[in-house]
Computed example of a mutant assay.
Amino acid sequence: MSGTAPGPGRRGQIAARRPHYQDDLRDGLGKFFEPPQSACPWCGSARLFRRLKTTDQLQHKPGTFVLDRCRACGHVFQNPRLSADGLEFYYRDCYDGLGEATMARMAGSPLAVRLYRSRARALLPFGRPARWLDVGTGHGHFCAEAGKIHPGTEFHGLDLGQGVEIAERCGRIDRAFRGPFPLLADQLTARYDVVSMHHYLEHTLAPRRELAAAHRVLRPGGHLLIEVPDPESAAARLLGQWWGPWLQPQHLHLIPLDNLCVALSEQDFTIVAIDRQQPHVPTDLTSAAANLLKSVLPGEDLPWLPAKPGPLARGLRALSLPAAAPALLALLGCDLLLSPVVRRTRLSNAYRVIARRE
């Protein structure tokens, strides 16, 4: 359900991290949030309503998180938003540290590989890029697959975490950049034929700044490839708080397609392709069931809990997970079987935009 397989090494890591996490939590959660916003950060309208309230369904760290929706433009955003301290706290041990092995397995799964190849093939009609920057590259698995479809292209990766450095050491990317994209963009001006952002923009504090950074680092005529969750998906309404792409507290902005297209035009991009079918990630039923299951199961041993769960809780969890596995596998089969139909409807959960820098 989360984390790496239990064993002495993992138990030792959890025990070593627990004092640090408890220090972080000693004064409460207030420092992890900015003041609530009274206006939409996208269009400035004050016509807001609560879209949902939920918990951390990925790591089960403490806290509740609210997503508001703007009645004027449809933008969905976290309110109150995580502060710098909150971002560090809730990302810690998710993609690196305790969560690194789990994320690596997911990134190397057959489903993920199919998505990577679809994204790479989407650029084939626009020529062979000499140099490609993947922003939010993680451990570089997309670049490794894209290199097979675009042989001869030099792939660079950029991210905040140490995964981008691991990607370079493993040979998945040719060069690693670690840090915030808007701050690094000036040293990369006009160096790239393609910039890609796959399920990255929704994690950022200021999406328009990220688009401006992409414009800076692209050569004239270069292309920007973006994939993001679709907050207008019918699945989001049907599955409510259990819909996987809400991914609280990490997703700060969920941007409707029309809003993103307008923002790209404002940055002097021309939209050359839109796709609401191929980017669909066929896991909605599975992830919703897993989120629901994790909300009712006894907690596992995690360092942000004050103490290790007792024998009864551990026993219930050990019995429940194997019992639930067949149902989750059946739901995954349904997701995959229905995917060719779902992706052609408004149930599709993501969209892709390709824009040319003029």
Rank of each mutant, 00 (worst) to 15 (best):
299 G>F: 06
94 C>R: 07
202 E>A: 06
320 S>N: 07
277 Q>S: 13
76 V>G: 01
341 V>Q: 09
217 V>H: 00
204 T>C: 12
301 D>T: 07
324 A>E: 08
112 A>M: 13
276 R>A: 11
112 A>N: 04
324 A>S: 14
17 R>H: 12
143 C>N: 02
99 G>F: 01
189 T>K: 13
258 D>N: 10
184 L>M: 15
182 P>I: 06
303 P>D: 03
337 L>T: 11
182 P>G: 05
185 A>G: 05
338 L>W: 13
88 E>I: 02
233 S>K: 05
273 A>M: 09
280 H>S: 07
277 Q>L: 04
276 R>N: 07
329 L>P: 00
268 D>A: 14
117 R>P: 02
18 R>S: 08
308 K>A: 14
85 D>S: 12
20 H>M: 10
136 G>E: 01
339 S>G: 07
192 Y>M: 03
340 P>F: 09
135 V>T: 09
166 I>P: 00
13 Q>L: 14
190 A>I: 03
19 P>W: 10
93 D>H: 12
80 P>M: 12
20 H>F: 13
317 R>N: 11
133 L>A: 03
234 A>P: 01
34 E>C: 08
80 P>H: 11
21 Y>C: 03
289 A>T: 07
74 G>I: 05
139 H>E: 04
159 D>I: 09
75 H>Y: 09
150 H>C: 09
324 A>H: 11
120 A>W: 00
111 L>Q: 11
248 Q>F: 09
81 R>V: 06
281 V>I: 15
54 T>C: 08
260 L>Y: 10
184 L>Q: 14
127 G>M: 09
76 V>M: 07
9 G>T: 05
157 G>W: 00
273 A>D: 06
79 N>S: 13
16 A>P: 01
214 A>W: 07
99 G>Q: 04
308 K>N: 08
12 G>N: 10
